[in-house]
């Protein structure tokens, strides 16, 4: 079960470490910065955490 966040930046394609670190090629993937509110992450108010995530780590949700 994932957490719902909002894409705040798109950074085009970057070398995908999941394959590159295993010698399986650079395999560039789209990279996004996703903003998660502290309510969603930790059930606490007042802040947000923005994390860079490659597209394969993301699942789309209905808005």
């Amino acid at each position: 079960m994932g957490k719902r966040g909002e894409i705040v930046m798109y950074h085009s394609g970057w070398v995908f470490p999941d394959t590159n670190a295993h010698g399986k090629g650079e395999n560039p993937k789209h990279l996004y910065t996703v903003r998660f509110s502290s309510e969603v992450l930790w059930n606490k108010p007042g802040f947000a955490v923005c994390i860079d995530l490659f597209e394969p780590y993301l699942e789309s949700v209905d808005v």
């Binding site: 470490p17 990279l31 947000a48 955490v49 860079d52």
Partner: peptide, 15 residues
């Protein structure tokens, strides 16, 4: 202040 929202940027990939 509690009215200031904090945003933490996690430099976790190439950015």
């Amino acid at each position: 202040g509690s009215n200031v929202e904090i945003q933490v940027w996690d430099s976790s990939a190439e950015i």
